[in-house]
Write a protein that binds this DNA or RNA. Structure first.
Lengths: 190, 190
DNA sequence: ACATTTGTTGACAAAATTGTTAAACATTAA
DNA sequence: TTAATGTTTAACAATTTTGTCAACAAATGT
C-alpha cells in the first residue's frame, strides 16, 4: 500500500467526510496510523498537503461532471445521470464543498488557477437548446443549473442543521434524502 | 462603545462575512483593534467566545424566522417576506451557515442544546394547509421547505465557487443573485 | 478626595503545532 | 554481500497560539 496515497485518502476522509476542515498534521497522521514526519516527507508542509488535496478535489469534481456532460445521451438521461453522480459524490463527501469554499477564501492564493469550467458552460448551452425545443421551461440556463445544484447539494451539506430543526434522527433524514433524486429531477424539469 | 459587544461583532464579521472560520484570538483582537487579553477578560477562552457567537447566531436566526412565520399575514405574503428576510441575512453573513455546520461537527458538544424549531414545524403545517387548499402544488411540506432554503442559501454560500465555474465577476454574479428573490418565489409556488 | 470596582495593558509561562535532522530500517541493484 | 537509494522513526528546535498575572488606568460611588 502506497503511504503517500494513504495519507491523502485519510486527509480527504477527515476534511470531506468528518468535517474537520482544519485538522492538524498530528490528527491526520493519527487517523492514517503513520508517523507525523511522513506528512512532511511526502508533502513538505501542512499547507502543501492542503493544496494538493484541494486541487485533486477540484480535478475529481470536474472529471465527474465532464464524463456526464460530454456523454452522448439524450438530455433527460444526461440530467438524470448528473443528479445520480453528483448526489452520490456529495453524500460520500458532504463537507467537500465547504472545504473548497473556506480554502478559496482564507488562502486567497490558489496555485492551479482554476479557470471556468468548459463542460458546465457547454451544459448551459445544451439546457438553452432544450428550452427552445420546449422540453423544459424557459429561464436563464445559468439559473437552471444553479437551482439544480442547490437542490442537490444544500440539503446534504446542511444535514446536521436541518436534522435539528425538524427533530429528525439519522435514519429519518436519510430516508428524506433518498427521496430527493426523483424529487429534484421532477421539480427542475417541469 | 461596549468592548464586549464590539469584540463579538468583530468576531462575527471575521467568521460569517470574511469566512475565516478558525480565526485566532490575535486575528480577532487585531481586527477589533483591542488588546488580545480583553478576549480572555470578557470571554474566558477562545472556545467560549466561539460558543457564545454560535449560540447567538442560532438565536438570531430563530428569532428572524419566528417573526416572519408567526406574523398574521396571508401565506403568499409570508413566503415573500421569508425570502426577503432570509436572503438579506445570508447576503450579509454568507459564511454563517458554514460556521454553524463546522461547529456542530467538530465540537460535537453544543451546550445550549438546540431543540427542534417550533416555528419551522408550524410553518410546515401552514404549507400543508395551503397545499390542501390548492394554492401551491402538493408535495411533502418538509421537502418544500428544504427546497426553499436550498434555493435561497446555496447560491450565496457557494458564490466563490460558481463565480469561478461560470467565469463571472463580482458584479455579474451580484446581478444574478439579485434576480433570485423573484425567481425562487416563482419556482417554489408554481 | 479617597476607596473600590471595572477595564486595559504588556510581560510572561504554558501548551500546541509545525518543521528539521540524524539515525535506523528496508528495498533494490550491482 | 555491499552499496545505494528510498522510507520510517524519534528527538529536537522553532514557531505559533493560548491563557494568566500583576501592574496600571479609568470610572464609579461614598
Amino acid at each position: 500500500m502506497n503511504t503517500e496515497e494513504h495519507i491523502k485518502a485519510t486527509a480527504k476522509d477527515i476534511f470531506f467526510f468528518k468535517g474537520n476542515l482544519h485538522a492538524t498534521t498530528q490528527e491526520i497522521a493519527d487517523a492514517a496510523a503513520v508517523n507525523r514526519s511522513l506528512i512532511n516527507y511526502y508533502f513538505r508542509s501542512r499547507d502543501h498537503l492542503f493544496e494538493v488535496v484541494y486541487n485533486e478535489a477540484v480535478e475529481t469534481m470536474r472529471n465527474q461532471l465532464d464524463n456526464v456532460i460530454y456523454s452522448k445521451v439524450p438530455f433527460m438521461d444526461k440530467l438524470e445521470s448528473l443528479i445520480d453522480v453528483y448526489m452520490k459524490e456529495i453524500l460520500k463527501y458532504p463537507y467537500k464543498e465547504s472545504f473548497l469554499i473556506t480554502e478559496i477564501c482564507c488562502k486567497n492564493i490558489l496555485l492551479k488557477e482554476k479557470k471556468k469550467s468548459q463542460s458546465l458552460i457547454a451544459f448551459a448551452e445544451e439546457v438553452k437548446q432544450e428550452m427552445e425545443k420546449g422540453t423544459i421551461k424557459k429561464t436563464d440556463p445559468i439559473h437552471f443549473i444553479i437551482n439544480l445544484f442547490s437542490l442537490m447539494a444544500y440539503p446534504i451539506i446542511m444535514a446536521p442543521l436541518y436534522r435539528k430543526l425538524f427533530d429528525l434522527n439519522k435514519e429519518k433524514y436519510q430516508e428524506l434524502l433518498s427521496e430527493r433524486k426523483a424529487l429534484v429531477f421532477k421539480l427542475i424539469t417541469e
